[in-house]
């Protein structure tokens, strides 16, 4: 049976997702509290996978715990920390736990995280991971051996609408679609015109676009993101707006709402990256849904 999230995407209904990082530790209480508080407002919750190459609880278990709680996760899965055996066995495990949505990612460089001496794997890349999910969905492993039971994942991929040179990223977007991606969750959007251009460019591929909206807290945080988080680029005017605001945290929410409202008519959904400020998500989503 397809997921609620898959069903809404297929029915061309607007979707809203948010993301949570699993804990840096073995106590899932905080993760579950956050997930339960967000669940009434979103269609699915992304569970990040050692994001920024910082070691945390495996998204497989975190996503499985959400399912048990009746909350629909989108399990993020990167190629950085697992070879093709580990990726497949984690996917089978996720399916067994009732996880239905997977976001297939390459993974940030291990050198930007908290285990810089570690060995990055990259046995597969995101396109090949999508193909792998497709194979498991058809009841076979990557080498064509039959499985006892097929998985039923809805697979998605990442995309960067504002990256330059955009054209150099096009062939990979085509390949992601061909390999089975049914939705793109984008990097943070700051220029809705670029999102519209991106949307037009990928529309022939039949992949739904879910625009990433970043909730900023301060100019300093934006500068930190620009320096340390691959693929995220907060433009200067936004940083200036935060720097001159009387209440930068509230200004960050206002910026996110403005962007989300502009993106709403362009794409199939919004993905909220709250950067830990989960308490503002309901307000943001209420504004988007208004």
């Amino acid at each position: 049976m397809p997921s609620h999230f898959a069903h809404k995407l297929a029915a061309d209904e607007f979707v809203i997702t948010a993301e949570i990082a699993p804990p840096k530790g073995c106590d899932p209480a905080g993760l579950m509290r956050t997930a339960i508080s967000l669940a009434p407002f979103v269609d699915a919750i992304n569970i990040t996978d050692n994001q920024g190459a910082n070691m945390r609880m495996t998204p497989l278990v975190a996503a499985g715990m959400l399912v048990r709680e009746g909350i629909e996760p989108i399990m993020q899965l990167t190629c950085r920390d697992r070879n093709r055996l580990a990726l497949q066995s984690d996917l089978l495990g996720a399916a067994a736990m009732g996880v239905k949505n997977v976001l297939a990612l390459t993974g940030d460089d291990i050198g930007c995280g908290d285990h810089r001496q570690g060995r990055a794997v990259f046995d597969l890349d995101s396109v090949l991971l999508l193909q792998t999910i497709g194979a498991l969905n058809s009841g076979f492993d990557l080498n064509g051996a039959p499985l006892a039971g097929a998985t039923d994942f809805l697979a998605g991929a990442a995309a960067a609408p504002e990256v330059e040179p955009f054209d150099a990223t096009r062939p990979k977007l085509v390949k992601k679609a061909a390999a089975g991606a049914r939705f793109f969750q984008t990097q943070a959007v700051f220029n809705p015109e670029r999102l519209a251009y991106f949307h037009d460019a990928v529309q022939p591929l039949g992949v739904k676009v879910i625009a990433g909206i970043l909730v900023l807290k301060s100019a300093r945080m934006a500068e930190f993101i620009n320096l340390n988080i691959p693929g995220l680029k907060v433009p200067l005017p936004v940083i200036e707006r935060l720097a001159t605001a009387a209440d930068p945290a509230a200004e960050g929410v206002r910026i996110a709402i403005e962007l989300a409202l502009q993106c709403r008519s362009i794409c199939s959904g919004i993905h909220v990256m709250a950067m830990g400020r989960y308490e503002v998500v309901p307000q943001l989503i209420a504004a988007i849904r208004s």
């Binding site: 990612l105 890349d125 990442a158």
Partner: peptide, 12 residues
């Protein structure tokens, strides 16, 4: 990253 199918999301 030794990727075979195109740039990663970190290209800028």
């Amino acid at each position: 990253k030794g990727l075979l199918n195109g740039p990663c999301g970190g290209m800028e």
